[in-house]
Design a binder for these strands. Structure first.
Lengths: 242, 242
DNA sequence: AAACAGGTGTGAAGTTCATCACATCGTAAA
DNA sequence: TTTACGATGTGATGAACTTCACACCTGTTT
């Protein structure tokens, strides 16, 4: 049974702000464009890192695999997102995470040395890149807070809210998360077991907060989820999964 | 009772790398230098953010207070650390976190507009700043992993290890964390209750892993803590609390 | 010396969560 | 259609963690 905590009324989120106009400029420095099939890896943890990637289409999941075989999913990147960025500005050129293709993708590869040099010479690009890093950092930090402070239920609610901001499609009955997700995949984002995730989702279904159609989650009452985790309604740029 | 998991042998950490030589350059753009007393706040969540700060001496704890009054501690900054950086490159000029002075501090305040302009005009500074942001991001991300995947004990172990990297003083019996910390303060870093933290610390004492002298923790066996959380022995730049 | 305050130590009870075990469901292949 | 397989749903059990309650300890004030 869900316990609803009483909360002060909150303001609605602002709409999603993308950096696509600026970040897209990176495309001109691309070394090559590649097509990668669902199920394969764009890169894997420990691999020599010489490039970073700009997603042109498709979906890529960034995750970390632990020594004991568990997986912690961190992001799902789509069009105009950047990944492999963590290896920039460092002399240890190994990928720290793995990038699994969820949906056939078209990706521009940009050499690290090229982008580093370009950033160095182009203040405007440097500025945009810093802005992106800064936004990206806040996403991680707010997610951190949600997962650490609000237990496993908080982790799941936070993940769902973020997914609506990144991949939500507005319907008249609510917001559809346009990603095919299994319970296990969702659990990997929360650091929970598949069973716990399943139980919480079923509680939400019974309460009419969500429903599931063909493996995709439709959220009828996002506000409920927000209130449960004490959401401060930060702009959607800082509350997304990409 | 502690349960010791078997782990593969790991390599020792590299020594701490600081960015002080480069980041210190920011000092020339400082607007003013201020002295702040223990117990007061450098800034608080929600306050108008017009400056960021370079710590010249003393200690500052960065934390987030939740709606229901709990506190999540994120960093302890000391000499040459930067704080208030999250408000850069954004139009919503409010501090997102609070900065409590733990130890009388001398701090240089740098106006946001000045630093942004300077970064824009000085590629070398921009580059160093990005490097710093990038390192800082990885700290957060590895901490995230430790806290989400390894339970509350993992959170505490991770926090202790990070503290040895930031404020550890090598003694012949181990590494002394040179910070006066109460159980509650430590718990705030881990998202746990004071009691849980106390119990885990006492287990560690009984096993001879740590001992406590005058409110400061002396760690005899850091390697044990590392193995328990499946530490990958990343460089200390990415495994610290500052 | 007595009183006080903030921090520590610990049992007991209750909640949350992971794990195991197994039934069911839906879809795609044989 | 039957079989097979991956995903879902759910009880039971135990471990991890929080919460409450209170004793104790230590240094400081009166």
């Amino acid at each position: 049974m869900l316990k609803i905590r009483k909360r002060v009324m909150t303001m609605p989120n602002t709409t999603k702000v993308t950096h696509s106009i600026e970040i897209k400029e990176l495309l001109q420095f691309a070394d090559r464009t590649i097509h990668v099939k669902k199920g394969s890896y764009l890169f894997q943890e420990g691999m020599e890192a010489e490039e970073l990637y700009l997603i042109l289409g498709g979906k890529v999941q960034i995750s970390k695999v632990t020594q004991d075989g568990r997986e912690l999913a961190l992001r799902i990147c789509g069009e105009n997102d950047i990944c492999g960025e963590l290896t920039l500005f460092t002399d240890a050129p190994k990928y720290l995470l793995s990038a699994l293709i969820l949906e056939d993708a078209k990706i521009a590869a940009i050499r690290k040395d090229v982008i580093e040099k370009e950033i160095f010479q182009n203040p405007s690009l440097a500025f945009e890149f810093m802005k992106w890093m800064s936004d990206h950092f806040r996403k991680t930090q707010t997610k951190f807070r949600d997962l650490v402070l609000n237990g496993k239920k908080g982790a799941l609610f936070s993940t769902l809210i973020r997914m609506t901001n990144s991949y939500g499609v507005h319907k008249d009955t609510g917001i559809l998360i346009d990603l095919p997700l299994t319970n296990q995949e969702l659990a990997n984002f929360c650091g929970t077991s598949r069973e716990s995730t399943n139980r919480i989702l079923n509680d939400l279904k019974r309460e009419g907060i969500i429903s599931i159609k063909k493996g995709k989650i439709l959220i009828h009452d996002v506000e409920f989820l927000r209130q449960e985790i004490g959401c401060e309604n930060c702009p959607a740029v800082f509350c997304s999964i990409d």
